[in-house]
Simulated scan of single mutants.
Amino acid sequence: MESRAPSLTERRKAVTQLEIARAAARLFADRGADAVTAEEIARQAGVAVRTFYRYFRTKEDAVAPLLTVGAGHWRALLAAADPREELLDALERTITEVLTPKSDADLESLRWTLGLLRAATADPALQFVWFRVNGESEAQLREIVATLAGPEAEPYAVRLIAAAATDALRVALEACAADESFSDPGAPAALASRALRELTAGVELYPVDA
């Protein structure tokens, strides 16, 4: 079934949520989540506090759209891959594309994300949002991997590859966030590609004839 295009209202809602998420990420990265209030985030984003709470239950929840937008773009790229391309090649290619900044805005977004992950190391609520976003992304990625792999693929291997690909991105971003002197925009893509190759080494996607 062909997916329905989002309405104008839905697009506006998504834009507002992302603006709030960016404001929250900037404040959290600069000062830590404990020192930031929902009122400050709303003011920074240029929205009313009631608008903030219409979209998010807590201040930590506000960062989820920023963390999911990259994963959503990645899944869209992968879903559009040529079925003739090897699955792991498509995964590595799209991971590299989505993690490689192509503009100053992309680089700024990457820095916000890394700053947010640094803040999350000392904030269980932020960590929960990060792990929840990754869990949701893995579940959605599994369906795309299964489609690209075809009906003959082992369901276990499909789950394993989706988990490995999700963790490759997660670990790469966390490793770069842990580097306070981070300066190489190509590092997340390089680390994620390496992690994907290492995590999927030896995985048999299709049944091996006895």
Rank of each mutant, 00 (worst) to 15 (best):
T16H: 04
R57W: 01
A5S: 14
P101Y: 09
K102G: 15
P207F: 02
E152F: 00
D167F: 05
S103D: 04
E92V: 14
E198R: 13
L87Y: 10
E180N: 07
Q140F: 00
A153R: 10
D104E: 14
E108V: 02
G46L: 04
S7G: 15
A153H: 11
L18G: 03
M1K: 04
A80T: 00
E108F: 07
E174F: 03
A164H: 12
S137W: 01
L126Y: 00
E10D: 13
P6D: 13
A24P: 08
I41P: 05
L91R: 05
L107V: 06
K102Y: 06
L173G: 09
K102R: 15
F128E: 09
L78G: 05
A187W: 06
A162W: 05
R75G: 03
T58I: 09
A33V: 08
S183E: 06
D184C: 07
S109G: 11
G202A: 07
R111Q: 07
F56W: 11
D123R: 02
V63G: 02
S3T: 12
L116H: 05
G46Y: 00
R118D: 04
R197T: 12
T16A: 14
A79E: 09
E204P: 01
E198S: 09
R54M: 07
A24R: 06
R142N: 10
I41N: 00
L116F: 08
A38S: 15
A210D: 14
E138K: 14
A64Y: 01
Q127H: 06
L148F: 05
R50G: 04
L66V: 10
A62P: 11
A164W: 02
G70P: 02
D30I: 05
A177P: 11
M1Q: 09
V203I: 15
V49C: 03
A177F: 07
R111E: 05
T100Y: 08
A187F: 04
V36H: 12
R93I: 09
A21I: 11
T96R: 15
D209G: 13
L126R: 04
A165Q: 06
L88M: 12
A210Y: 11
A164C: 12
A139L: 12
A149E: 11
T9S: 14
G135D: 13
A42Y: 01
R11H: 10
A164V: 09
R50Q: 12
A81D: 12
P65L: 02
T200C: 06
K13V: 01
V63Y: 02
D61K: 01
A168P: 05
L191K: 02
A105R: 12
T94G: 08
A125V: 08
D123S: 15
E136Q: 07
L91I: 10
G202Y: 04
A90K: 03
D106W: 01
Y53K: 03
I20L: 05
W130H: 06
G72Y: 08
C176E: 01
D184M: 03
P65I: 02
A119P: 01
R159F: 01
L169T: 03
G32K: 08
A163T: 05
L160K: 11
S109Y: 00
A105Q: 13
V36W: 09
P83L: 00
L110F: 07
R31E: 14
E97V: 12
R43N: 09
R118A: 01
S7F: 08
L67I: 09
R132N: 09
D34V: 11
L148R: 02
A172N: 12
F28G: 02
A42M: 11
A157S: 13
A38T: 15
A42F: 05
A175C: 06
L107M: 06
A139C: 03
